Amino acid sequence: MEPQLLHTVTGQVATVVIRHPAKRNAMTAAMWGSLPPLLETLAADPGVRVLVLTGEGGTFCAGADISTLRGSPLEAQRLAVAAEEALAAFPGPTLAAVRGHCVGGGAQLAAACDLRFAEEGARFGVTPAKLGIVYPSSATRRLVSLVGPATAKYLLFSGELIGTERALRTGLVDEVLPAGELDGRVAEFTGILASRSSLTQAAAKEFANGRTDRDAHWEERARESGDTSEGVAAFLERRTPRFS
C-alpha cells in the first residue's frame, strides 16, 4: 500500500491517520511534505473543532523512513520540522492517539500535539543519537517543556525507549488506557473538547505556548463573541451552552 496520510471528519472531529504498514508507519519525505497543507485545509473547515493524529493498525509511527535520509538528511529534517510546527500551530485542540511504537519522528509529531493518550504497551523514544542526527532546537524545546530537562536529556542522550508507565509519570502522555479502550476514550474526550468554548481553548493554547502579549486581543474577542454571557447563562439555567 502506498505510504500516505489519510483523513476523515466525523462530526466536529478530524482524524489524520499515518499509513505506511510496510515500515511501521514511518514517515517518508512525501508524507512529511503533505502534512502542512492537509492541516491547513482542515483548519479552514469551520466544522472542524478538534484534530486527532494516530497511526494505522497497531503502531503510531516508527519515525522517519531511514531510506529517505540517505540522499538529503538536512532536507528531510527541514520537512519534518515544518510538519511539526504546522501541527503545533493548528488552531483547535490536537490529540495524539498512540498504540505501539511512537519513536523518532513519531515522537516529534506526538509532542507537537496538545495532548497524548496511549494504549498500554506503547513505547516511546527520541532516537537521533542512534543516527548521529542533531535534533532540531524547536523539537528539543518542546520536549523539555513536556517532560523537563532531565527526562529530555535521558531520552535524547540515550535513544532508549520507555513504556507507558514512565511516559505517564514524566508527563509525556496524559492518559494511559487498557487494550481495546483507546478509541472509545478518544471519542469521548474529543466530544467533550468539541462541546467547550473554542474561544477559551484558542486563547489558552496561545498563552500555554508562550504568547503572552495578547491579553487585550482575547478580551476583545470574548466581548464580541458573547461566549462568557452564554456560558454563565447556561450554567445558571442548567442547560448545555451554545457557544459561538
Rank of each mutant, 00 (worst) to 15 (best):
Phe60Glu: 13
Phe60Cys: 10
Gly210Ala: 03
Val50His: 02
Asp114Phe: 09
Ser137Arg: 09
Asp45Gln: 08
His101Met: 15
Val147Leu: 12
Val186Arg: 12
Thr127Met: 11
Ala203Val: 12
Thr68Met: 15
Glu220Trp: 08
Arg78Asn: 11
Gly184Met: 05
Leu172Tyr: 11
Asp227Val: 01
Thr41Met: 10
Val98Gly: 12
Ser67Asp: 15
Ala86Glu: 08
Asp213Gln: 11
Val144Gln: 13
Arg214Asp: 10
Ala139Leu: 07
Thr151Gly: 07
Gly104Ile: 03
Arg24Lys: 15
Pro21Phe: 01
Thr41Gln: 06
Cys61Phe: 05
Gly104Asn: 05
Leu168Tyr: 09
Gly58Pro: 05
Ser137Gly: 12
Leu193Asp: 10
Ala43Met: 02
Gln12Glu: 13
Ala139Ser: 09
Ser195His: 07
Arg185Met: 10
Pro136Phe: 09
Leu168Gln: 13
Phe235Gln: 13
Phe117Gly: 04
Asp227Trp: 01
Ala233Lys: 14
Arg70Gln: 07
Asp114Trp: 06
His20Asp: 12
Val186Met: 07
Tyr154Ile: 02
Pro37Tyr: 03
Ala222His: 07
Pro73Trp: 06
Phe117Glu: 07
Glu220His: 09
Gly92Pro: 12
Gly33His: 11
Ile66Gly: 05
Val134Tyr: 14
Ala107Lys: 00
Arg123Ile: 01
Arg185Ile: 02
Glu230Arg: 05
Leu6Lys: 07
Arg141Asp: 15
Arg141Phe: 05
Asp215Glu: 14
Leu39Lys: 02
Ala129Leu: 09
Ala194Asn: 07
Val144Tyr: 10
Glu165Asp: 04
Ala62His: 14
Val173Leu: 12
Leu199Arg: 06
Leu51Thr: 00
Thr59Met: 10
Gly210Glu: 02
Val13Cys: 10
Cys113Gln: 00
Val16Pro: 09
Gly92Glu: 11
Val52Met: 03
Pro93Glu: 14
Thr200Glu: 08
Trp218Leu: 02
Ala150Phe: 02
Pro36Leu: 03
Thr240Phe: 11
Gly180Val: 00
Leu51Arg: 01
Val13Ser: 15
Ala62Gln: 12
Ala64Cys: 10
Asp215Gly: 12
Phe117Cys: 07
Gln77Ala: 12
Glu2Phe: 05
Ala26Gly: 13
Ala216Arg: 13
Pro136Ala: 06
Glu56Ala: 13
Arg19His: 14
Pro21Lys: 02
Ile133Asn: 07
Ser195Ala: 13
Val16Asn: 04
Gly226Asn: 09
Leu146His: 08
Pro128Cys: 10
Arg24Met: 13
